[in-house]
Write a protein that binds this DNA or RNA. Structure first.
Lengths: 139, 139
DNA sequence: TCCAAACCATAGGATGTCCAAGTATATTGT
DNA sequence: ACAATATACTTGGACATCCTATGGTTTGGA
């Protein structure tokens, strides 16, 4: 139980730090994750449904994030060529510019001040990866 | 970075499970934490400010939780005997009844299905405790 | 003494997350 | 081909969290 509480508090601390670091870039962590995901995808575009699965959030949460990203001009919704239900997400030029800057800042500041030794980070990751797998994360 | 993501996802999974378990009791995890804290305190009452520090949430978040707990009759706000600024939180009879049931259910179901071995849980707790201490958690 | 600074709690606004419903489009089975 | 089912996304509502600002209350220094 103490372990569970510790995980929750730690997540909350990291989220606050990440949001603070990303604020100057006009981003929150949730929105950064969307941008980063689009940056990874080779074709540069992803259906909403696929993005929400990869990010492990509900479609409604993604709709919310994308609304804001679209309002600030970092992402664009385009129709799917063959499936009328699906919208594809795509980085705009502005999005392609903001992403590397935000990512660099986050890597440098959050990772650097993470107060976790390399072995601790590895340990944490491995234990939690086992847990997440057992819980059906990663699909 | 992967470790940080893992912590966040894990926290999210646990939070969802906890909320689901507590829902039949008319509680969320945030509100349960308030109840549990009041249950721990020997005198049975705590100032809002102290409770928010112990729970590591902003005073405004606690105000929100307490509003809902008060609306459902589980907690009561009473004036501080000597300091006019302070409100004391106190469990109602209903609150004293709900708390052990909710706690038992949570311990049984969340802890049992935690998919974490005892040694893993200990490991996680220790590593994250170091991190939290370095980050100024625990005050 | 008395006013300024500190402190407590709350209100209002922004964000993110979930669930339940609703709308539109595809797919499937008869 | 058509109706039933499934899928994709959005909308509306409930919660939680943060930040900034505000109204009371206390305290401490001039």
């Amino acid at each position: 139980m103490a372990a569970i509480t510790a995980v929750m508090r730690t997540a909350s601390i990291y989220l606050q730090r990440a949001d603070a670091i990303l604020k100057p870039h006009g981003l929150t962590f949730a929105r950064f994750e969307v941008l980063a995901l689009l940056g990874f995808s080779k074709r540069g575009s992803l259906p909403m449904s696929q993005a929400s699965q990869l990010l492990q959030v509900h479609a409604t949460s993604l709709t919310n994030s994308v609304d804001r990203l679209e309002a600030t001009g970092l992402v664009r919704r385009i129709p799917h060529p063959t499936d009328g239900r699906t919208r594809l997400l795509e980085l705009t030029a502005a999005g392609q510019q903001v992403l590397p800057a935000a990512r660099g800042d986050l890597n440098e500041k959050l990772f650097a001040q993470s107060d976790l030794s390399g072995t601790d980070a590895t340990e944490i990751f491995e234990i939690l990866a086992r847990f997440r797998k057992a819980s059906g994360d990663f699909l």
